[in-house]
Nucleic acid binder design. Structure first.
Lengths: 212, 212, 212, 212
DNA sequence: TATGAATGAGAGTTCATTCAT
DNA sequence: TATGAATGAACTCTCATTCAT
């Protein structure tokens, strides 16, 4: 009675497959970069055969794009949600956003994505564009919005918001970079919290001593 | 009949070749990343045959390291020189340094190196370490020194200099990133001068509005 | 329309492939030596693509070692079996062994292995050592054992068995050499049987005329 | 007065060059085999530039042939000389020849040549043929002549001289082989003198015990 | 449908040979 | 004439992709 025997060996979790593949691929791509990533290894990590990959993704480049897309999309919604919680002062709002983002970077493996995008932008212009449109632009809208609101309300000085938003964001990117590039070189490790505090301190109050 | 045999098929240029090869390789590596760069293409760009590369560099990895090393070494001395010109106030000193660095990034092709290092750090730990030791650490000494001097002289607030130096540097890195990753995505281009002004403005005076 | 798509372009033969590859490689290595053997050619001879070789053997050197190992191992057991058939006089035993070995050399393609090992010993010390340990030493034990037994039983003169075994073996090696090096040069060909008879005749009774 | 200055830097010893090159090449070819020998290395060993090689030998194959030829020719005359000293008994003559040859093998670097020829015979049929004609055939004439003379004079048994000569020679070849292939594997080394004694002992008197 | 053996284009690398100097 | 930089064909090896099973 062959029919009686339960689930056929494959199809086990055909539904979860894409997710598992994306996770495995994300890890490998972040670890080694696009070119140095072996599909063989991705498949092994996901617990499937190399051939099966091609059932879900047309080829390596498509897999890569899917990885980036899916990783970003997961994050975008949360960021947006955060942004709409705009009660309170602009100062607090900005701090809240930067804090939330820093937490995320320090904790999640997803922070590998920005690094990946930067590294492969030359070979994948569409990825760069996608990231720019979906991440950078949204971040810009968010930050610049906060800045303009703050200026309008008299909480912030009248800064050049068209460019200032990048300066605001820069230490976040540096944090990502540090985590993925120089962590191994720092003997004492890197304290994200302290970095955040330093960032907020300088950003809000500047370096200059105030005369009494 | 001198005209008969026109110019020779190739020339012996043992002295200049290494430099030419490094330049060609730098351009290709920055454009495509390590793995996607074809030695064939590097050679063609330098105007030699693929085999000639191997007279000067043992293999692809060595060529890569040589590219990074030579590009960095050229820059380090100047940075150091700049640092020793320490007359004047700390505020001016800091501004001078950031300005000089921004100019360099915006003008020279060498700014591709940091991006390259970040992208390949995972596959070339020694390169990451080298960059960290020779560039990052020097920059840290420089910046942190200026900060501490400024604090000591009462020109700056008493900030956490152990971490603040990274915040100071972050917009420079973002500038590099922008140039090499997102320039093509920005319809209006990127104005390094304005970015610098914004950076200095925020860094020195902060966001917060001062009460009268 | 079954005729439309004729036989498949290739077949999966994971079980037989290694053997087929070894055979093809053996032939090529013997014919040309290690360095002059092209993997391309080995693959073609085995009826597979170049890339397939690498599924079964890590690289050329490993393929070479596998060839030598597998060729030897096949033979060793038989030799051993032969040796244990030690009934009868020592004279007959020695003759039986030399005869069996000569037959094998004259008939099998495996006799190319010793020649190969000799030729490549300089570049593959491990192969030389492997051959020495697995073949030469066994042969020595076998022959020297027969000699000592013969001496003990009064069948042989009291010869220097520590060195004599090599003299006993020498004409076998010469036979191998002849087959693989000078066969084409001998207009009348080479008669292994006659060589063997000559060998046994001289070995057992020597050259010297006996006085009545 | 530029003419006054003594010998121009090259031409130093243009006459000796070929000899020096042959020596260097012999050493390299014996050490590594034909294919693995680098002309670069040969040139360096001879103290000239790679390009200069081509002034004396058309290409690698020609150099190889010249090496073999010159190495052999040096030896042949001596062997011939030895052969003509045919006073005394056949037994002594044979012993004298084998002794002389063994000495030569154990001492000179030229014994690498036979090994080289055997190894490369497949790729250089002309070399094999040359060696066969110039060395093997002469050796055969020599040995077979001694054997026939001995038989005719009643000093030797009536052996099959057409094949016996090879059996006589075999231990010499084995000696060469041992020196160049298995020397490193023998912990106690290899005593050529003892090998020779064993050879002569067995060859002349055989293994068989004589009944009283 | 899942597998992984088989493919084959293309990469890095080597080196005999040539030729500008 | 001697040199060694430059060449380029040819090789080993890799791996994304296909397809027989």
């Amino acid at each position: 009675m062959p029919e009686l025997s339960a689930q056929p060996r494959w199809q086990r979790r055909a539904v979860d497959r894409p997710q598992e593949l994306l996770q495995a691929a994300l890890a490998e791509f972040v670890e080694r970069g696009y070119a140095a990533t072996r599909l063989d290894q991705v498949a092994r990590r996901a617990g499937v055969s190399k051939g099966s990959l091609y059932r879900y993704y047309q080829n390596k480049a498509e897999l890569f794009k899917a990885v980036v897309r899916s990783a970003l999309i997961a994050n975008l919604d949360e960021a947006e949600a955060l942004a709409s919680a705009h009660s309170g002062g602009s100062r607090e709002l900005l701090a809240a956003f930067l804090t939330a983002f820093t937490r995320r970077v320090s904790e999640s493996a997803l922070s590998g994505i920005p690094k990946l995008v930067m590294a492969e932008a030359g070979n994948f212009p569409e990825i760069a564009r996608f990231y720019f449109d979906e991440v950078i632009q949204r971040a810009r809208n968010l930050i610049q919005g906060i800045l303009e609101r703050g200026v309008a309300r008299g909480e912030f000085r009248n800064v050049d918001t068209d460019y200032a938003w990048r300066v605001v964001i820069a230490p976040l990117m540096l944090g990502i970079l540090w985590k993925h590039t120089f962590l191994a070189c720092e003997p004492g490790g890197f304290d994200f919290e302290r970095h955040l505090r330093s960032h907020l301190d300088l950003l809000l109050d500047g370096l200059a001593a105030r005369e009494a």
